[in-house]
Computed example of a mutant assay.
Amino acid sequence: MSPSDEQTEPTANCPARVTASRTPLPTPDYLKKLYWWAYEHPLAVRFWDRGFLINFILLGNYDRLGNAVLEEFSNTQEGDTLQISCAYGKLTQRLQQSLGRKARLDVIDILNGQLENTRRKLKQPDKRISLVQCDASELRCPDESYDRVLMFFLPHELPESVRRKSLSEAFRVVKPGGKVILVEFHRPKWWHPLRWWQKLVFVLFEPYALDMWRHELTDFFPADLKYAVDSKTTYFGSLYQKLVITRTA
């Protein structure tokens, strides 16, 4: 579904730490050019947001990677969490189920259609959750606002300059001692039987994703960032990774 003319407002009774823009934000040029068919076209959400398709795209690893995210969230999670970019599938629903009574989850996306799709999948009303249109590379919220920030398969879709800005923003808004959780592609083992298939998919459909094979995610962090790598876990012959980072100052 394409962005609507109306601004998506935060869920009632849950004031988001992210400030909603007074007017709808424009769709970035790279997204309109490269990913219109996946996220922006009116039929995109209806077609792609199906469990079997998401699992096929991730070569049978969707549930495993979702479980990897939930490992970082206790069943009685408290504090404030920012999810940067909506994700097809049931990940945000599962995060909702993990929220403690006093917890907060803010979900941002540049596309109102993606926000509305996520809203439909959540149990409502829920005063702990807000959905706000926002640009990942220019978060409209104060420094040190969140206890944790999640990016689930977002950096590989961004041009390098936007990726660097978005990661910088993620660390700006997380509190010292807070965590940034990144689930992304990773350079597979040389013997991986699907290595060349995945590379072909990248070349045809996701031209920025090969950066995940050429570099570590930490290569795109701000040069002056003070952080510690809590853990780096790879999955499925190292084709995927989960990186858990603590901002130390």
Rank of each mutant, 00 (worst) to 15 (best):
G178K: 04
L154F: 10
D143A: 09
T27A: 12
F202I: 08
R214M: 08
L59V: 14
P42C: 05
R101N: 09
Y208D: 15
V173H: 00
L200I: 11
Q7H: 13
D211Y: 13
I54P: 00
L131Y: 02
L122F: 01
S74V: 10
T81M: 10
D230K: 11
S166A: 10
Q198L: 11
A170T: 01
S74A: 14
W48Q: 03
F202P: 04
F47G: 02
K90N: 15
Y235T: 02
V18H: 01
I84H: 04
V180E: 00
V18K: 01
A38S: 10
F221S: 00
G178I: 04
F47Y: 13
S166H: 03
E206L: 04
S21H: 04
D211E: 15
R164N: 09
T27V: 15
R120Y: 08
R247F: 04
R104H: 05
H215A: 08
Y227E: 07
Q7S: 12
P10T: 01
I84C: 08
S85A: 14
L150V: 10
W37M: 13
Q198Y: 15
F153I: 06
P24A: 08
D109R: 01
L217D: 03
G89F: 00
Y146D: 03
G100L: 05
D135E: 11
A44W: 00
Y208P: 11
K179W: 02
Y30M: 11
F152A: 02
R187I: 11
L31F: 12
Q93F: 01
V183D: 05
G100I: 09
A136N: 08
E138K: 15
V183N: 02
Q241L: 01
A223F: 12
L204T: 06
A228V: 07
W48L: 00
D143H: 06
A136S: 03
K226A: 08
W191R: 10
L53V: 08
D5A: 13
W36S: 15
W196T: 03
F52C: 12
D106F: 02
N117V: 01
Q114P: 12
G113F: 00
Y146N: 07
D224I: 14
P142T: 13
W37I: 11
E160I: 01
P28H: 05
S161W: 11
C141I: 07
Q77C: 12
A87N: 14
D63R: 05
T92A: 05
Q124V: 12
A12W: 07
T23S: 11
W37L: 09
Y227P: 04
T248S: 08
L194K: 03
A170G: 02
G177S: 07
S2T: 10
N55D: 15
Q93M: 10
Y146R: 03
P42G: 04
L182K: 00
S168Y: 05
A228P: 02
D5K: 13
L217P: 07
A223G: 05
F56N: 10
A223K: 15
